[in-house]
Amino acid sequence: MGLGQSSRTSVSEDTAEVNFDHFQILRAIGKGSFGKVCIVQKKDTKKMYAMKYMNKLKCVERNEVRNVFKELQIMQNLEHPFLVNFWYSFQDEEDMFMVVDLLLGGDLRYHLQQNVHFTESTVKHYVCEIALALHYLRNKCIIHRDIKPDNILLDEYAPELFQQFEGTHPEYSFAVDWWSLGITAYELLRGQRPYIMRANTPANEILQAFHKVHPCYPAAWSPGIKSLLRQLLCVDAQKRISCLSELQDMDYLSDVNWDTVLSKQIPPGFLPNRRRLNCDPTFELEEMILESKPLHKKKKRLARKTRENGSDGSPQNGKIQQRLESVQRDFLVFNREKSRKTKVDANTNNLNTEETHKAIQDGQNNNISPSPCLSG
């Protein structure tokens, strides 16, 4: 969950609002139902980031705008060593952009598919780091809702949670994330999930399986890891480990120095291959060959669209156009560099004011008068 060092260097002197032109597009590394992710480099600072971009029209058509805006609102208020932290958001007439920490180690799903064997000590360490992230989110009244290997990214040090934050929900609480943590830890250790289900399995069958099917714990696993997994995978949420303090009370984790874990001073048990990009290479091929509106040609495409009086050849009905205009108006622009600089400047001004006030008080208390000016 550790952060890449590229996003921890000094704050850029140029803290103006950023836009697409401030970044050099390097390569595509992932995609979702209506969004894609690429590696970018900020031209002024040379820092590397991951940039997620979402097509506005697709978001509107699929009624996802509210979720995107909620994600933007939540992420701008979060910053933690074991979260993929949010740096910038901006838009153009086609897309919404989110720029976040870049982690080149790939996600845990990718490494499972590469038949990586995670040792018990490595999984134990991952559990501790993810637990610290969940504790931070809980203090922010946030349920992650999607803890799984796909959303745990690696750099050269450790894993890190990515995306899918959600507020509290009346039907479940924070315990759901700890259940997912147990499922993830089990899969990392064994290479398969404790419950075999499919995406189309009915909900009632899933619930029955949780009560009737008991996960298999191989004899080679230590009693400590078995106890941890059983308490995380307890079907009764009231009896499940569901907070950091309960986890820390376990004998199995009594040897963990939590401050050392948080400061990422423990050497990782698994190191991703630094000589290659740990992701599916087909994303890059699809972007270059199959994508009708490739990102690297955006500037020319938008310029041509402007010359053609704003027509892109795809007429939209009035309702869709109104919703697109609403997205343009309500989109949240964010710049963490600028926010940090503003905060530092404010703290410096407050400190200077306090020091000046204290100096005046000290002078009055000690009956010290200003020295007279001397002329030569």
Rank of each mutant, 00 (worst) to 15 (best):
G2Q: 14
S6A: 13
S7P: 05
T9V: 11
T15F: 03
T15N: 08
A16I: 09
V18D: 00
V18L: 03
Q24I: 10
I29M: 11
G30N: 00
K31D: 13
G32L: 04
K36T: 02
K36F: 02
K43V: 14
K47I: 02
Y49Q: 12
M51E: 00
K52N: 03
K56P: 01
K58R: 12
C59I: 02
C59A: 13
E61Y: 04
V68W: 00
V68P: 00
F69V: 09
E71Q: 04
Q73S: 11
V84Y: 02
V84R: 02
Y88V: 04
M96F: 01
L104Q: 14
G105T: 02
G106N: 03
D107P: 08
L108G: 08
Q114W: 06
V116I: 13
F118H: 04
T119G: 14
T122L: 11
V123H: 09
K124E: 07
C128E: 05
E129L: 09
I130Q: 04
A131L: 08
L137K: 01
N139L: 10
C141I: 11
I142S: 03
I142L: 07
H144I: 05
Y157H: 15
A158C: 12
A158L: 09
E160P: 08
Q163S: 10
Q164G: 05
E166H: 06
E166I: 04
H169D: 12
P170V: 07
S173D: 13
F174K: 09
A175S: 14
V176M: 06
W178R: 00
W178L: 07
W179E: 04
W179T: 01
I183C: 08
T184A: 05
A185I: 01
L188G: 10
R190K: 12
R198M: 12
A203T: 13
N204I: 14
L207D: 09
A209K: 09
A209P: 01
H211V: 14
V213L: 13
Y217I: 09
S222G: 08
P223N: 09
L228H: 01
L233E: 00
L233I: 03
I241H: 01
S245Y: 04
D249C: 15
L253N: 08
V256S: 07
W258R: 04
L262N: 10
P267M: 10
P268G: 08
P268V: 10
G269K: 07
P272F: 05
N273V: 05
R275G: 15
N278A: 11
C279H: 03
D280S: 12
D280M: 05
D280K: 07
T282P: 00
T282C: 06
F283L: 14
E286K: 09
M288I: 15
E291K: 06
K299P: 01
K300M: 07
R307Q: 12
E308C: 07
D312I: 09
G313Q: 00
G313D: 03
Q316C: 12
K319S: 10
Q321S: 15
Q321P: 03
R323A: 15
E325R: 12
Q328I: 12
Q328F: 05
K338C: 15
D345W: 00
N350F: 11
L351M: 11
T353Q: 11
T353K: 11
T356Y: 11
H357S: 15
I360P: 07
N366I: 10
I368S: 10
I368N: 09
I368Q: 14
I368M: 10
P370G: 15
L374C: 15
G376L: 11
